[in-house]
C-alpha cells in the first residue's frame, strides 16, 4: 500500500524531471548554434521577457482569457446538458438535431470566428460564442453516450416504480452519465482555452492570445513565448481543476482500484 503510493507520487514527478532536463539542453543549443532570438529564444531570454512585463499587465491578459474560457465553457455546459437529455428522451430530436450538430462540428470554428465578430460586434459576445461552439460537441456527445449507456434494467426498475421521465433522468440517467460527462469536460476545458485564444486573434484588446499576436507583430518573440507558456499552464490548471472536482464530488465515478 505505502509502496504503491510512493511509486505513484514519484512517477507523477517524471514529467517535471523531463521538462527540467530539456531546459538546459534548449539553452545550450540556442547559444551554441547562435539561433536568432526571433526564431527560437533561449529559456533565459523568455524568462527575462516574462519579468520585464509588469505582473498587473500579465494579470489583466490572463484574466481576460480565463474569463472567456470559463464563461464560454459554462455556457456550453448549460446548453449541452439539456440538449443531450432531450436527445436521449426523444428519438425524433436525436434524429433531427444530431446531423446539425455534426455539421456545426465539421465547420472549422476558426473560419466562423470573423463572421461571428461581424454579426455580434467586437465585444465579449463573439468570444463567448466561439468558445461555446468549440467546446459544445464533446460535451453533448459525452453526456448523450453516458445517458444511453444506462443499463436497461435500471430503466425498467424505474418504470416498475412508475417514476416520471424527469425522475428517471435526474436520479438514474444523469448520474450514470457522470463519468462520461467528466471525460467530455476534460476535453472541452482545454478546447475552451483554444476557443478563447482564437477569438482573441480575431478581435480583442486583451487576453493572452491577443498578447501573443501583439508581441509577434512587434517581433518580441521571447515575450510571445512567455505568453504561450502561460497559456499552456493555464490550460493544464483548468484540466486539473476538472479532475479535482471529479475527485472531490464524484469520487465513485473514477476508475476503480481493484481489490
Amino acid at each position: 500500500m505505502t509502496k504503491g503510493t510512493l511509486n505513484f507520487s514519484t512517477s507523477k514527478l517524471f514529467p517535471v524531471f523531463t521538462l527540467l532536463a530539456i531546459l538546459p539542453i534548449w539553452e545550450v543549443m540556442v547559444r551554441m548554434f547562435e539561433i536568432p532570438n526571433f526564431l527560437l529564444p533561449a529559456p533565459s531570454s523568455i524568462y527575462q521577457a516574462f519579468i520585464a512585463v509588469d505582473p498587473s499587465r500579465w494579470a489583466i491578459h490572463l484574466w481576460a482569457t480565463l474569463r472567456v474560457a470559463i464563461l464560454g465553457f459554462c455556457l456550453s455546459l448549460v446548453i449541452s446538458l439539456p440538449l443531450a437529455i432531450f436527445m436521449v428522451k426523444s428519438k425524433f430530436l436525436a434524429k433531427t438535431l444530431y446531423p446539425i450538430l455534426v455539421i456545426i462540428q465539421s465547420t472549422p470554428v476558426i473560419a466562423i470566428a470573423p463572421l461571428l465578430v461581424v454579426i455580434m460586434g467586437a465585444g465579449e459576445a463573439p468570444r463567448l460564442a466561439i468558445t461555446c461552439l468549440i467546446t459544445f460537441f464533446p460535451l453533448v456527445v459525452s453526456a448523450t453516450t453516458g445517458m444511453m449507456s444506462t443499463p436497461e434494467e435500471l430503466i425498467e426498475l424505474s418504470k416498475s416504480l412508475k417514476a416520471s421521465a424527469v425522475k428517471e433522468v435526474w436520479h438514474i440517467r444523469l448520474p450514470y452519465a457522470v463519468p462520461h460527462i467528466f471525460s467530455g469536460m476534460k476535453v472541452a476545458i482545454t478546447l475552451a482555452i483554444i476557443g478563447a485564444v482564437v477569438a482573441e486573434f480575431v478581435a480583442a484588446e486583451q487576453g493572452l492570445g491577443y498578447f501573443v499576436q501583439f508581441s509577434t507583430s512587434y517581433f518580441k518573440i521571447p515575450q510571445a513565448f512567455a505568453a504561450l507558456l502561460l497559456l499552456s499552464t493555464l490550460s493544464l490548471l483548468l484540466f486539473k481543476t476538472v479532475q479535482l472536482i471529479q475527485y472531490l464530488f464524484f469520487r465513485w465515478s473514477l476508475p476503480k482500484d481493484k481489490f
Binding site: L154, E156, F250
Partner: peptide, 16 residues
C-alpha cells in the same frame, strides 16, 4: 405493479 419485486440478471446497482 408496486407489489412485484424484480431481480435482474445483472445486479444493476447504482455505482454512486
Amino acid at each position: 405493479q408496486l407489489n412485484t419485486g424484480i431481480v435482474f440478471q445483472k445486479p444493476t446497482l447504482l455505482p454512486w
